[in-house]
Amino acid sequence: MATKTPTKRATAKKTKFPSVAWFEAVAAITRVDAQYQKFGRLNAVIAFKSGNSIVQANFDVLHIHEIQEIEEDEMRDCDFIIELEPAQWKDMLKDIKKNGTASLDWTLNTLDLKYDEPIHRNDLEDGFKADLFFRYLPSLQVYFDNSSQIDTGY
């Protein structure tokens, strides 16, 4: 997992986080990422929650599709949810932008361990589904690390 050099696109418009467009943009980069493909198949519908905004994505084999906004009560249908405060998402994404990949303090795993409660959960307390977070963590980290390649607005 070599560190990637952040690429700057001076003319690129900022893509707002969180939004369907942002998750789509990162998905488009990730689908063709050799490291992501190397890490192999996934099978999980994941919700990403930031404040009141919830975006769901279906990580299906190596596809990432069905990216859409969902309501709070639809999170129960997701395999697991990753929730951070808007400011935490922002700090994580800024760290990734700065370093090309998340530095040690800002990986999803570190964030999951850092606070009193994990950042991931299954809304029906299904521990098997919640554990998918651990199974797919290397791939999900590649996904978020790829956000260094777009310009994010908040």
Binding site: A2, L104, L113
Partner: peptide
């Protein structure tokens, strides 16, 4: 999982992350 927090470089980070998966 704790290993990633104990990592002092990207090599250790990768070891623990992949082994955890």
């Amino acid at each position: 999982r704790m290993g990633e927090r104990m990592a002092y470089n990207n090599a250790e980070k990768a070891i623990y992350r992949l082994a955890a998966s």
